[in-house]
């Protein structure tokens, strides 16, 4: 699984927890890439949510967080202020992450997503509803337009 797969897994969990809004922050600094995913879902998770096949969603579920932790140097999940906070980081750089790859399917699910791309803790790019205003995410053609839009904006993060 690549980095956009891991973020998509996290966002899918948010959707399945009933979230309507997800904030994804990605910070590339000193050879590490940090992911912070906050959502307004119901935040019910078992004692060790990162264990394989441990899930509140039924049998044969519970692989997403496991893969996130297996891929990361460290990962944590917590709850405060009515939001669930997932944090994980691993070796990598901005060039290793393709935000357009997870964003199109995430918006297709009907989630309100805010994506903030940072470099060394400083915000470089913010993508939100204003960025993709007017696009219909159920339409295949608009999903592709979204991807091209995000690729273009992401270049500001890479430079």
């Amino acid at each position: 699984m690549d980095l956009s797969d891991l973020v998509y897994e996290a966002v899918k969990n948010s959707f399945e927890a009933g979230a309507s809004k997800v904030e994804v922050e990605v910070d590339s600094s000193d050879g590490l890439i940090h992911f912070s995913i906050d959502d307004d879902g119901d935040g019910k998770f078992p004692d060790d949510p990162f264990s394989l096949d441990v899930s509140t969603k039924g049998e044969n579920r519970g692989k997403g967080l496991f893969f996130i932790r297996e891929s990361s140097i460290d990962a944590s999940i917590s709850r405060s202020g009515g939001k669930t906070h997932l944090r994980f980081f691993l070796k990598g750089s901005a060039e290793d992450f393709k935000p357009e790859d997870f964003l199109a399917p995430a918006l297709n699910m009907g989630l309100d997503v805010v994506l903030v791309l940072k470099k060394n803790g400083k915000e470089a790019v913010r993508l939100d509803e204003g960025t993709w205003k007017g696009l219909d995410f159920s339409k295949g053609s608009d999903l592709s337009l979204l991807r091209r839009l995000v690729i273009k904006r992401s270049k500001e993060w890479l430079n």
Binding site: P105, G140, S144
Partner: peptide, 12 residues
């Protein structure tokens, strides 16, 4: 995920 994105690109 790759397939979904690829189908969207071809459709467009």
């Amino acid at each position: 995920k790759v397939i979904l994105n690829y189908i969207a690109d071809i459709v467009e």
